[in-house]
Design a protein around this nucleic acid. Sequence first.
DNA 1: CCCTTTGCAC
Length: 627
Amino acid sequence: MALYFSSLHFPSTVANHHHSPTSHTLKTHLLHNFSSPFELKQVHTHLVKTNTPLSNLPLTRVGFVSALTSSFTYAHQIFAHAGVSQVFVWNSCLKMFAESENPGDAVLLFYKLRQFNVFLPDSFTCSFVLKACTTMLDLFNGRIVHGYVEKLGLKSNLFLQNMVVNLYALCGEMGDARLLFEKMSQRDVVTWNIMITQLIKRGDMVEACELFTRMPERSVRSWTVMISGYVQCGKPKEAVELFVEMEGVGVRANEVTVVAVLAACADLGALDLGRRVHEYSNRSGFRRNIRVSNTLIDMYVKCGCLEDARRVFDEMEERTIFSWSAMIQGLAIHGQAEETLRIFYKMIETGMKPNGVTFIGILHACSHMGLIEDGRKLFSSMTRDYGIIPQIEHYGCIVDLLSRGGLLQEAYEFIMNMPMKPNGIIWGALLGGCRVHKNVDLAEEATRHLHQLDPLNDGYYVVLSNIYAQSERWEDVARVRRLMRNRGVKKTPGWSSITVDEVVHEFVAGDETHPQAQEIFRMWEKLLGKMKLKGYVPNTSVVLLDMEEKEKERFLYRHSEKLALVFGLMNTPPGTPIRILKNLRVCEDCHTAFKLISEIVNREIVVRDRNRFHCFKDASCSCRDYW
DNA sequence: CCCTTTGCAC
C-alpha cells in the first residue's frame, strides 16, 4: 500500500503574529528536543507559521519519535514535503533505533516500512536491521532479514554477508554460519576473522587454528584473536609462539595484541619476554593506554616483579578499578599485607569505589599474613560501607583467614552460618587450615563434605593423607590411598617450569628424560651435601607412596620444583634471580630446601605456586612460613 | 548524504 502524500497543505507565506521572545526560546528549545509526536506537531505548525524551511527540522529525530506511533504517516508526509530521500532519512532512523536501548524497535520499523512499501531497502537498511538483530541475538528476525538480503540481490555485498555470518555464529548457529561461509563467492580477511573469533568463543581452538592456517591473508586482528584465544583456553605457550611468529612475518602488534601477549607472559611467568613486550609497547606509543598498563601490572605481579608492577602503577596518569585491583592483588599474593591495606585506603581517598574483586585482594592479603582482625573488619565493612554483597569467594577468604589463623572451630561455625551452600573451595580452605594446625577431626569432617561435592578431586585426598602422615597414622594414610585407587582418582602430576632465554622448560616429578638430567642430578647431589651441613633433613612424610625410606628420599629429590631450580642455577648467570612456576602448591620439603639453597648459592629464588609467591632469600621466605 | 563487519584487563 502506497502512502497518500498530499493530505497536508503548506502555505508558502504566513504572517508572523504574536511572536514574543519567550515563546521563541521555547519553540527553539522544542525544535531540538521534542520527544513526542504531539510536540512535533507544535513545532511543525510553528515552522509553517514562521515560514521557516522544513529542512530546519532535525528529520531523523522526527522519524525517531514518530516511527512507531500513529504519527508514522505524518512523519512520512513531512519527509516528502521536505524533499529528502526517503531511504536516507529512514535509514538514519533505523540506525538510531539499532543503537538505542531497544534495538528491537529497528526491526519493528523495518517491518512497518515494508508493510507500507515506503521505499526499496538498500544495503544500509539491511545493515542497520541486521545490527539490531545481532545485538539482541534475534535469530528469528535475523533469518528473515537474511532472506531480504538474498531477495534484494545484495548477495554480493561482502559487508552484509559478513554481518549475517557473524549473526549466525553469535547466535550459536555455527552450522549455518559455516555453510554460508563455505558457499560465499568471495570472502575477505574480516570474514575469516569473524569465523575464527566465533569458533574460539565457543572453545573450538582446533577448528579456529585450521581456518587460521587456511586463510589467504592475515591482519593484525587475525593474529591477535588467535593469540588471545590461546591465552583463554589455557595455552599461553602457544600464544607466545604465535606472537613470535607474527613478529617474524613483520606484522606490527597493536594495543590489543600487546594486552593478549602480556596476559600469556603473565600465565607463563615469562618475565624476559614480558619486559621485551613492555619496551615494544612503549616504542609503539602505547604508554598511556590504560588497558595495556593494567595488563603490565598484572604481568609483573605474576612474574614476581612487584617493584616493576609498582612502577607501572605509579606512572599511570589515569587509573581504573582494574589498575587498583591488580596492584592490590599483587601486593597480596606477595605477602605485603600492610602495603596492601595502605594502597586500598589510598584508593578510597581518591574517590575510586572498590568492587568485589578489590575485596578478594585485600581479604587475601589479610589471610596470607594472618591479619585476622583486619580481615574480619574489612569483611563487615564491605556491605556496610561500600554496599557490596559478599559472594562465595569472599566467604572463602574468611574461612581461609580463620583456618590458617588456627581458629578452626570458628571457621567451621562460620561455614555453618553462611547464607549459601558451601562449595569445595570453602571446605578445602578449612582442610588446609587443619593441615597447618594438625586437626584430624575437623579435617575428616571437611573431607566428608569434599568427597560428596567433588569426589574426583585428588587434592583433598592428598591433603588428608598428609594430615594423617603428620600424626603418624599410617593405616589411615593407606586407607586414603586405597580409597583413591578404588574411586579411580589420579594424583594431578605436579609440574614446574622455568623460562630461560624465552624458552619455557617444563619439569615433572621424577623426570629423567631431560637432556640435562644427569648434570642436574650431579649438581643436586653437590647442593644436598652443603644443605645437610646446614642441618637439612629430608621430610619424607610428604611422599605418600608405599616405599622404602631411601626410595622416598630419592623420590623427594626428583620433585619438579627442585629439578627446575637446579636447571635454572646451571643455565643462568650467577647472582641473578631464579623464577619458577608451579602448578600446585609448593611442597613443604622443597620450601625448606629452597630457603637453604638461596643462602648457599646467594641467589634470590622466586616461586609462584597456585596460590601465591614465595621469595626465598638469605635462608628465609617472604611468606614467613605462613602459607 | 546513512557509510555498515572482527580483537583486549583485576
